[in-house]
């Protein structure tokens, strides 16, 4: 790196202006000028001095040279070419850039379309899964209903009707019992709705002992209850919500003896 004092003491700026420096020295001094306002100011003064010196010693420039220059620069293709080439290159650059932007926008559009399609496809897949699940559920329900009706229509199935006592005089519960298949179905739709704190519970009387058969859901057409072997009668009581371990006989709403 050239030292600033060295630049001034060795007439480096003067020699730079006069074109006496080597290419590497010239680059080095140009770098120094770029980075030092003081050096640039000093250079300006020296350049100005030399230019004034030349302006005091002008010689009339030949007019024919000016004419030649204008003719040569406007007709010589090798001289003209380098500029149009640049503008052509710039023109081509802008065409290429525009094309690239167009492609990019097109790709973005196609990508977003593809994303939308994928999203729609995903939604359709989810809908399909939901429908399949629904279909499975309907099939299962159908199977259940079919099997329940098959059971009801089975000749070996006995039908028993429980009628309400004083507590629920209008109550009616129909029980379908098949001993061969050890299945019990109950239609409890005709039971009046209870408050949220209570449920109907069904019991089987086996040798004087009430065995739990399950809770009665009054909202369903048919309710599957536990089959209890050796039951003499079936009974319905009102119990706290969720059912009890032991039947509350005082809350008995109806019963029927089995054959």
């Amino acid at each position: 790196m050239i030292d600033k004092d060295d630049i001034i003491g060795n007439n480096v700026l003067e020699r730079y202006v006069l074109g006496e420096l080597s290419d590497s020295q010239q680059k080095e001094i140009e770098h120094a000028i770029y980075n030092s306002a003081a050096l640039k100011a000093q250079l300006d003064i020296i350049e100005s001095d030399f230019e004034k010196l030349a302006r005091e010693n002008t010689i009339e420039a030949p007019v024919e040279i000016k004419r030649n220059l204008l003719m040569i620069t406007s007709t010589d293709n090798s001289l003209k070419k380098h500029r149009p080439k640049q503008s052509k290159a710039r023109f081509l650059f802008w065409i290429a850039a525009s094309f690239a932007i167009f492609l990019l926008l097109g790709n973005i559009y196609l990508y977003s379309q593809r994303q939308d399609t994928l999203e729609n496809l995903k939604i359709a897949e989810q809908e399909k899964l939901k429908l399949n699940e629904k279909l499975h559920r309907v099939n299962d329900s159908l199977k259940t209903i079919n099997s329940q009706y098959a059971l009801i229509e089975n000749p070996k199935t006995e039908t028993y009707t429980l009628t309400g006592n004083k507590l629920k005089p209008n109550a009616e519960v129909i029980a379908y019992i098949n001993d061969a298949e050890k299945k019990v179905l109950v239609d409890a739709k005709n039971l009046t709705q209870l408050d949220k704190a209570h449920d109907y519970q069904m019991w089987a009387d086996v040798n004087g002992k009430m065995i739990d058969m399950g809770l009665l859901d009054t909202n369903q057409d048919l309710v599957v209850m536990n089959y209890i072997e050796g039951a003499k009668s079936i009974n319905v009581t009102i119990e706290p919500a969720g059912g009890s371990d032991h039947a509350t006989v005082a809350n008995l709403v109806g019963n029927v003896y089995l054959d």
């Binding site: 030349a54 302006r55 010693n57 010689i59 420039a61 000016k66 220059l69 003209k80």
Partner: peptide, 25 residues
């Protein structure tokens, strides 16, 4: 710089006398 060769004429008028003074010497 923009490739306008017509600009060469006034630039010649402004600078050629000083430059020619150096060249001829």
């Amino acid at each position: 710089k923009n490739g306008d060769n017509a600009a060469l004429a006034p630039l010649y008028d402004n600078y050629a006398p000083a430059i020619y003074g150096i060249i001829i010497r």
